Each structure stands twice: as structure tokens, then as C-alpha cells.
Computed example of a mutant assay.
Amino acid sequence: MTDYWVLIFFNLLFTSVPPIIYGVLEKDVSAETLLQLPELYQSGQHSEAYSPLTFWITLLDAFYQSLVCFFVPYFTYQGSDIDIFTFGNPLNTAALFIILLHLVIESKSLTWIHMLVMVGSILSYFFFALAFGALCVTCNPPSNPYWIMQKHMLDPVFYLVCVLTTCIALLPRFLYRVLQGSLFPSPVLRATYLDRLAPEERAEALKKWRGTAKITQMASNYAGQSAAKSGRPEAGLSAALPVRSVTACAVEQEDLPTCETVLDVDYSEQVSQR
């Protein structure tokens, strides 16, 4: 559906540099935040980003994108008299935009270097396609890419196919990231939000984070000690402890010693009752 020179440069040049830049410059959390919240390293230690569930979701998403990338142009040009290379041109163009915008969705630290590389990839693709279609009349017989991109760039249907294919292909991934960030953000994602705050707000948020983590750890330790002494399941006492209210106290009142005292009193009362 496309000339092999276009395929070679598609993988070698147009879509190779952006993932490399993404891998080199991508940064979830700043170094200052990591120094103050070392527990964020647990996600890497537990391989949370490379779980089997993540693998299968990514595999299914890639399969879905490939189906969209083929069938949207297929149904658009169904019944027309275009040749196979003219049909393959919008597939390649849509695939390029899907790959680049997928990186934008996954990136957590976009910089001007990312944008420069992506714009350069798009411009280099169109420049090569236009030059190849204008100069290479019989470079690779029996294929004939002559003037294909030039004709498509004058056709509004070509732009509609590229935009529609890209949006439909990336919609599930985009919705997944939106719901993940809104409903069940990971600790790393929450820490990423802290880096976007003003210095004063960031310092206050870090104070609340550490206070909440300390209270939760104390409640867990108390529950474990009580379960070990009484021989009862740990979940019973853990559920009885007012962990949620004490944590809210640490966050809302910003008074960690007071909250610790309340927790100690509640724990002592429950142990004496038992």
C-alpha cells in the first residue's frame, strides 16, 4: 500500500527520534520532590508500571489503533477508483499523527525539545513525501508514487480521514488517562501535581502528605501490635481504629501532634476494652 522507501524512512527517521527524546527527557517527579518523598520509589521497586495488566491493556490498545487506522480510510474510500498506493498514503499519515500524539498523552513533562522534535518529524515526513512524489516517477517499478501526496493535500477528504482516524484511535487511551488522573491517581501522579504548585503551596502540600503518611503508618503498626497480642485478625482492629478521621485531622487541621494524641487515646481505650 506504500512504497518501501517511505516505509524505511517512516521507521528510521519520522517516528524514531520522538520516542528516543521521550525516553531521555521524560521525568515523572522532580528530584526535590523525590528527596522529600522517598516512598515514591516503591512503584519502581514493585514494578507497578510493568504489570501483566498493563501489558495486555497496551496490547489491546495497539490492536484497536491498527484496526481504526485501516478501516476508517477503507470505509471512506470504499467504492472509489483510487489505487492501492493512494489508499496507503492516508494510512501512513494518520499512523504518524497517532504515534506522536500518543507520546504526548503519555508524557508527563513536555518541553520545547519534545515539541520541536515532533514538529520536525511531521515536517520531514511531508517534505519527503512531496519530494518523493514529485521526483520519483519510476524509481521502484511497478509502484508509481508520482504526485500522490500533492493530490491528497488538495483534497479535503484526506484531511478529514487523518483527523477522524487519529481522534478515534486515541480516544480510549485519552479517556483512560483522564479517568485515572481524576478518580484513582497513583502516588507518583499525585506527586507530579505537587511540582506544578507554587513554592508555598507545594511546601504546605508536602507537609500534609508526610503527616498523612505518618498517621497511616502509626495506625497500621498499632493494629498489627494489637492483633499479635490478642491473637485476633489484624483487619478487625484496623477497621475499628478511626484511621480515616485521624488522617483527615492531619490534613485539615495541619496539627500532627494533636492527631497523634487522639490516635493514642483511641488506641488505648480500645485495648483496655478488649
Rank of each mutant, 00 (worst) to 15 (best):
Asn92Met: 11
Pro145Ile: 08
Cys139Trp: 08
Val188Trp: 07
Asn144Met: 09
Val72Phe: 01
Val119Asp: 08
Tyr146Ala: 06
Asn92Phe: 11
Phe70Met: 10
Gly133Tyr: 03
Trp147Glu: 15
Leu110Phe: 01
Thr58Glu: 09
Ala169Gln: 01
Trp147Leu: 15
Leu171Pro: 07
His114Ile: 02
Arg190Asp: 12
Thr86Lys: 01
Gln150Pro: 01
Phe63Cys: 14
Tyr64Lys: 03
Gly181Phe: 01
Pro142Gln: 04
Met149Asn: 09
Ser109Lys: 08
Pro73Leu: 05
Trp56Gln: 09
Ile84Lys: 11
Pro73Phe: 05
Val119Leu: 15
Thr192Phe: 06
Ala94Glu: 01
Tyr176Met: 15
Phe75Lys: 00
Val161Ile: 10
Ala131Glu: 14
Trp112Gln: 15
Ser182Gln: 14
Thr166Asp: 03
Gln150Val: 12
Pro156Lys: 01
Val72Ala: 04
Trp56Ser: 13
Asn140Gln: 12
Ser109Asn: 09
Ser80Ala: 07
Pro172Phe: 10
Ile98Thr: 08
Ala95Lys: 05
Ile122Phe: 00
Leu160Pro: 07
Gly79Asn: 00
Trp147Ala: 13
Gln78Glu: 11
Val104Pro: 07
Leu130Tyr: 14
Leu67Ala: 04
His102Gln: 13
Val137Lys: 06
Pro142Lys: 05
Cys69Lys: 03
Arg177Gln: 12
Phe75His: 10
Arg173Leu: 15
Pro187Gln: 14
Thr138Phe: 07
Ser66Gly: 15
Ile105Val: 15
Thr58Phe: 04
Thr93Phe: 01
Phe63Gly: 15
Leu160Ala: 14
Val72Ser: 05
Asp155His: 11
Cys167Ile: 11
Pro185Thr: 11
Ala95Leu: 14
Gln180Asn: 12
Tyr176Gly: 05
Tyr159Gln: 00
Thr138Ile: 00
Phe71His: 05
Leu164Trp: 07
Phe70Ile: 11
Phe63Glu: 08
Leu60Ile: 12
Glu106Arg: 09
Phe87Asn: 02
Met149Gln: 12
Val161Ser: 06
Thr138Gln: 06
Ala191Asn: 11
Pro73His: 03
Phe97Lys: 00
Tyr146Val: 06
Phe127Gln: 15
His152Gly: 09
Tyr146Ile: 01
Lys108Trp: 02
Leu160Met: 13
Phe71Ser: 05
Val68Met: 09
Leu67Asp: 05
Tyr77Ala: 00
Met118Asp: 08
Trp56Gly: 04
Leu59Asn: 02
Thr76Met: 00
His114Gln: 03
Thr76Ser: 07
His102Asn: 13
Val161Trp: 05
Phe127Leu: 15
Ser186Arg: 04
Arg177Asp: 08
His152Val: 03
Pro90Gln: 05
Leu116Met: 15
Thr165Lys: 10
Cys136Asn: 10
Leu189Gly: 04
Leu96Asn: 02
Tyr77Asn: 00
Phe128Lys: 14
Ala129Ser: 14
Phe70Tyr: 15
Arg190Leu: 12
Val104Gly: 11
Thr166Leu: 06
Met153Ala: 13
Ser66His: 15
Leu130Thr: 04
Leu175Ile: 08
Phe87Cys: 03
Pro90Trp: 02
Phe71Val: 11
Tyr77Arg: 01
Lys151Trp: 02
Asp81Gly: 00
Met149Cys: 07
Leu160Val: 13
Ser124Pro: 08
Val161Arg: 04
Leu123Gln: 14
Leu59Lys: 12
Ala134Ile: 10
Leu135Pro: 06
Thr76Val: 07
Asn92Lys: 04
Tyr64Thr: 00
Phe126Trp: 11
Thr192Cys: 02
